[in-house]
Write a protein that binds this DNA or RNA. Structure first.
Lengths: 344, 344
DNA sequence: TTGAAAGCGATACCAA
DNA sequence: TTGGTATCGCTTTCAA
């Protein structure tokens, strides 16, 4: 018993005007008299008419849909970036297709085709952008669909890219520790094949050099996303090199892990009240913030991840392209700020 | 210089067949000879043709699009549920519209209209479902668009709902503590107006009664999402009622906060090695797991949030409805499991 | 200011 | 097994 769907024809009939008029009222384009406009609008919500965007975009206009391909929406960074994107687009009356590419290369290509077939106006690729190949690029150009990447690390050719300034973030973190008087600083976390990590390490090392501090490669420790390993690694590092007085943590989960690692060594995390003069204090700072870091005692200072801002900026950039602007491809770098919480 | 878009007409022309034939090849419906089929397929990817789904769904078919309205994608629970939904739908060749309704009631209605206008085949509402009113319900029915809710707590009428079993989750958590020998158990976290909390409290109280344990309303403490407050609340609670030996935590962030609260009182969290016989041990258990809970020393036991499974189940249910099954509206309840980590 | 009519790209029915 | 063609709902000239 599905009530026959209401179309502009029905509206036109009921309002006693032509379909063309209804269409004009809908889009607010032609000059329509006050009275007609009101009458049409009235019949529209009397009949419960909903405009069919598929039909309108078929005829010529935009679809009002942008596609987002994200590797894994569960990663807080991408979740927040997605939220930022969504906010911005929804404010423009656009809506987001969300596809998850997963870890495999084939995922991206599959998502890409799906989006094209659905007639999106533009595509945002977030994460896993190294899988973006020339073939996809070409296809996007051919279809006239602008492409833009948002990622945690750099490295694409001929495509707009919005990303955090990993180097600057690490620099800020390191300088923060140095200004607090630390001279023996280690870097903990991330895996060797991570581009993001490479960039952050760059900032870390450069800052040490800049301040004339020693750089020791044994103080740069890999450890993967499993929290517990970060704690182990921190503990091990501190036991082996008791001189270390501060650690730059590759990401927030590592910072949290390191926090527990420090406690296990019997030392204190710097910033809290000094309970004992016999305990050494180790300072921690995280790159990429997360709410959990506010929780420890003392709470941990971190560098913001700027995920939401990256989302906003990406959306704005894509909107420019959609507006038909002919722009050079560009890397847009979003800076981070320090979120000081009292650890030092 | 946008290359004119390739349509099936172009393909038909190039392959020397009719558009009807191409369409049949595309959908694999009519019986087409091997040779023709191959020739068509060949020209298709020679010309780089991409099928326009807007056009096909206009004519009659499904759009292959499902709308998802989520209050805030940044909440890990909903992020993971979204991931589960996406996986399932993508496996069926469907794609997800993601809209964020935000905290306001108006948000839901706006998202809802947007989705209808875009011609989605079905709609999933995740979170904020108490804003779902009769008007929207009616509109969905009128448009023939199945509606389904996925949420953390119950309470809708006439709409399919997939949700966790909050009561059972709290029951499990409480029983877990009781079996470890605890008799003085408190409940910490959540706000009074939360339905989810009400359900969990129900399970908590029922279990206490069932085991003949005392139920004291002063041991049921509200505290909001700010982590730090959870620590304060736990500390305060334990100082005021030193008899309390275990706490059921409303969610994972509260559990983490409570962990620090316990430490501040000078007590130990149960499960670790006994450092001192003079310290009391307080057991913690979280409802809704999160990776951070594996991090503390000792790691915290929790009840799984089953977010991904809720996503899967919701998707399956909607797919049934899309397949035209005429089903009774139903509440589907997903059970939780204990993730034991050694705290007790 | 409004109306009539020609498509947009794909589908599906009816013929051939 | 294939080909013509009306049709989906809407936009957009061009006339009235």
């Amino acid at each position: 018993m599905s009530h026959k769907k209401i179309t502009i024809t029905d509206v036109a009939l009921a309002a006693g005007v032509s379909v063309a008029t209804v269409s004009l009222v809908l889009s607010g384009k032609g000059r329509i008299s006050q009275t007609t406009s009101e009458r049409v609008n009235h019949t529209i919500d009397q009949l419960g008419f909903v405009r069919n965007r598929q039909a309108s975009s078929l005829r010529g206009g935009e679809s009002g849909v942008v596609g987002l391909i994200v590797r894994d929406i569960c990663e807080p960074f991408y979740a927040e970036m997605t939220a930022g994107l969504g906010e911005m687009f929804e404010a423009q009356g656009k809506v987001l297709f969300l596809l998850q590419s997963g870890p495999a290369a084939s995922g991206l290509a599959r998502c890409f085709d799906t989006l094209l077939t659905h007639g999106v106006d533009g595509i945002v690729i977030a994460g896993g952008i190294h899988y973006l190949d020339e073939k996809m690029r070409a296809k996007a150009v051919e279809q006239g669909v602008p492409l833009i990447c948002a990622s945690r690390s750099g490295g694409t050719e001929g495509v707009d890219l919005v990303r955090p300034d990993n180097m600057q973030a690490a620099k800020m973190a390191t300088e923060y520790l140095i200004r607090k008087g630390h001279k023996q600083i280690a870097y903990l976390g991330g895996l060797g094949n991570s581009l993001t990590r490479a960039e952050r390490l760059g900032g870390f090392c450069a800052t040490l050099l800049q301040y004339g501090l020693p750089f020791r490669s044994e103080w740069i420790i890999e450890c993967d996303y499993q929290h517990r390993l970060a704690a182990d690694a921190a503990e091990d590092l501190l036991r082996r090199y008791p001189k270390i007085s501060a650690i730059v943590c590759h990401k927030s989960s590592v910072a949290l892990g390191a926090y527990f690692g420090v406690l296990r060594t019997g030392n204190q995390v710097a910033g809290g009240s000094l309970n004992s003069l016999f305990q050494k204090q180790v300072a921690l700072i995280g790159i990429e913030d997360s709410p959990e870091l506010a929780l420890t005692e003392p709470p941990l200072t971190a560098v913001s991840n700027s995920a939401r801002e990256i989302g906003h900026t990406t959306a704005r950039r894509l909107l420019l392209r959609l507006a038909g602007q002919n722009l050079e491809t560009q890397d847009i770098i979003i800076h981070s700020t320090i979120i000081e919480r009292g650890s030092a």
